Amino acid sequence: MLLWASAFIGVRSAGSAFSPGALALGRLITGALVLGAISLARRDGLPPRAAWPGILGSGVLWFGGYMVLLNWGEQEVDAGTAAMVVGIGPILIALLSALLLREGLPRALCVGMVVSCCGALVVALGSTGPAHARLLGTVLCLLAALSYAAGVVSQKSALRHAGALQVTLFGCLTGAAVCSPFASDLVTQAAHAPLSATLDVLYLGVFPTALAFTTWAFALSRTTAGRMGATTYAVPVLVLLLTWLGSSVVPGLPALAGGVLCLGGVAISRRRAAGRTRRAAEGPGAGMIRRRRGPA
């Protein structure tokens, strides 16, 4: 989560020299080279056939679509605001899981979605800059959150058949293929970019992509998508902290209030799910046992 938080700041910094598509492609190529070298050393080979639908889905939606949309969005709004809007990703993961896995659509989830959407609107209105840029940046970050959520659901299915390193490596390669139309832009912009921007791209590829995505996939393979999605609640707070430490710049009070609404909506949506998880863990006889025992 800390590395992903730093990615919001790195994207904002590198975006001054690289276009959204070129930045995404440079980041993915760097990540794929690092992971490819490790995979060759481990002699992992190709993932099994059953894993490819999930790998392709996560590669297109998360590694490709999410990165381009986020890079574009951060050219319109600041890193902290982008992180707060993308922070509704966990609620979208829960929604997609309910629809795709037929787990139902609890009322708490619907209420949480409404609250989070209201928060995103407040963020758009409270961010600095021209109104059209605030609106465009917020919409792009919302689309990035949706792409990220769909990518996580796809990745979870792939991890049932392949290891974390394999899923991440070939997800990176798929995302790079999606972003390949921006190859000429990457070459041109890299030739004229300052050293600091180039180092930002390399950092994004090695740490928030190769390392963070692989460790995420490793953890995701051992728990549910909903629970892993909940860990990303910390990202907006970490982004604000890193931004403050690095430049003493934080979003204004309206944007912060909107971010609180976004995360509050996520918390509301998860309350009922958490209750169901506890009841399932206790088993059907837990309530009867408590009633028999009576007050302590």
Results as ranks from 00 to 15, higher is better:
296 A>P: 13
243 T>S: 13
134 R>G: 02
55 I>P: 06
78 D>L: 00
72 W>N: 07
163 G>E: 10
173 L>A: 12
167 V>E: 15
277 T>N: 15
215 T>S: 14
23 L>S: 14
44 D>M: 14
269 S>R: 09
81 T>K: 00
175 G>T: 05
293 R>Q: 11
65 G>Q: 13
137 G>V: 04
231 T>G: 01
242 L>I: 06
206 V>W: 14
231 T>Q: 05
216 W>H: 13
56 L>R: 15
168 T>R: 05
56 L>T: 14
265 G>A: 09
119 G>A: 04
263 L>P: 04
164 A>R: 06
18 F>P: 00
4 W>P: 00
67 M>R: 13
128 T>W: 06
119 G>P: 02
59 G>E: 13
115 V>N: 04
21 G>V: 02
21 G>H: 06
225 A>N: 09
254 P>S: 03
237 V>P: 01
272 R>D: 14
86 V>L: 02
33 L>A: 15
45 G>L: 04
82 A>G: 11
37 A>R: 12
246 G>Y: 05
250 V>R: 09
9 I>F: 01
161 H>Y: 07
172 C>K: 12
69 L>T: 00
54 G>E: 11
239 V>F: 02
22 A>D: 10
24 A>D: 13
284 P>D: 15
47 P>L: 04
128 T>A: 10
146 L>A: 11
202 L>P: 00
265 G>E: 12
276 R>S: 09
176 A>L: 06
223 T>V: 03
226 G>E: 15
71 N>R: 05
216 W>S: 12
73 G>T: 00
283 G>Q: 07
47 P>A: 05
48 P>Y: 09
176 A>E: 08
189 Q>E: 12
201 V>P: 01
234 A>N: 07
161 H>R: 03
247 S>E: 13
83 A>W: 01
264 G>L: 07
66 Y>A: 07
56 L>M: 15
126 G>K: 05
28 L>A: 11
55 I>N: 14
4 W>I: 02
160 R>A: 13
157 S>F: 04
249 V>P: 01
9 I>M: 04
113 M>S: 06
69 L>M: 08
212 A>P: 01
242 L>P: 00
48 P>V: 04
39 S>C: 15
148 Y>K: 10
6 S>P: 02
